[in-house]
Simulated scan of single mutants.
Amino acid sequence: MRTWAHELGFSHIGVSGVDLSSAEPRLLEWLALGYHGNLQYMERYGLKRARPAELLPGTVSVITARMPYLPRSTSPDWQALERARLDAPTEGVVSLYARGRDYHKVVRGRLRKLCDRIETLVGPFGYRVFSDSAPVWEKELASRSGQGWRGKHSMVLSRDAGSMFFLGEIFVDFPMEPTEPVSEHCGTCTACIDVCPTGAIIAPGVVDARRCISYLTIESHDPIPVELRALMGNHIYGCDDCQTICPWNKYAQKTEIPDFDERSPLVGQQLVDLFAWDEATFLKNTEGGPIRRIDHVRWLRNIAVALGNALRDADETQAAELRTALLSRAHHESAMVREHVAWALAQRPGPGDPVWP
């Protein structure tokens, strides 16, 4: 089965049981503190995330898998290169995982192919595949099955693969011997906590989603909290800061799958050019990718914040260009876009600007 998994692009597979009851109090406390923000599905499904046999009756074991997603062209110094993007305030930074095709479909499709091969070995069996696509407690299942340990940024970390991989699961209706979990190797390192721009990692392994840039730019449908906007820099979709700083990611693996290669319209682009995309261009340039999870309005919302952050310290020539871009959306039909544009312009006010607040 491991050989088949490797042939399908998975770097590692493991097996977990379905009893996650010992971790349920931690999940309930996180929800009670409101750290899930407006992720209502987290609250709606509650403990079902921790009970695989309730999500899919008949489930006896869970096969877990990880799939690297660093593009095939990734250079050895990729971490430094990605961090350098943060020092180029007029460039829009899209999270690494979002620069290729939508991983949900890729991972699930290959898990189904793995199931077809398993069926040749054990005969017909009941199963369902997942990849960030249902109330599945992926990180808990992954860590229990030896995919890695839970890092202080809350993601799964592996000594030989870092954290730059997608997770997937196969719920099966026959028993399998669980694989052993691995020990934790973060030690005294707090790099991920220290580097988080918005202080979202409030304790080792505990993330307040309401402050997380990935949540703010992807999951949230609301205006971005004013007190967090200046902290977001030039992030316009997701954030990799806690991963690009992590020492273990020097061992991150490149993908073998062309679907995860970078798409040029999303990488190394200037904010003013991305802000100029109309809805048709946005849909065309993000077709088949995970950025489709947000709409054009939220795309403009995110970029307006980044433009405001760039405007604050830009030279006169850059400032004029940034202001022209922002003013082009000052009368946008969306009140949320108009408000974020007004905020951005207020970072360096000019005559005739829309009033904010």
Rank of each mutant, 00 (worst) to 15 (best):
C115L: 00
S61N: 03
E333Y: 06
A276H: 06
E169H: 08
P71W: 05
E82F: 08
A142I: 07
S95F: 05
C189D: 14
E7P: 01
G199T: 05
W343L: 02
A276P: 09
L55P: 08
A320D: 13
A50L: 12
L121D: 02
A335Y: 07
F260D: 04
V62Y: 11
E287P: 08
F171C: 09
V15G: 10
N234D: 07
G92R: 03
A304H: 01
E138G: 10
R312P: 08
A346N: 15
P124K: 15
K254W: 01
Y97A: 04
R150M: 12
D208E: 04
G238P: 06
L327V: 04
G151E: 01
L300T: 09
R211S: 01
K113R: 14
E140I: 08
D208S: 07
P354L: 02
G289A: 02
A306F: 00
D353P: 11
E82Q: 15
R110S: 02
V341D: 04
E287I: 11
R49Q: 09
H153E: 09
A330H: 08
D241R: 07
S145K: 00
A335D: 15
T3M: 12
L231G: 06
E184C: 05
T255K: 01
W277H: 12
V60Q: 12
S163A: 01
P247D: 08
I213H: 05
L141K: 02
R99H: 03
G100D: 00
R26E: 13
G352L: 06
L322E: 00
I291Y: 11
L167G: 06
P265R: 01
S61V: 04
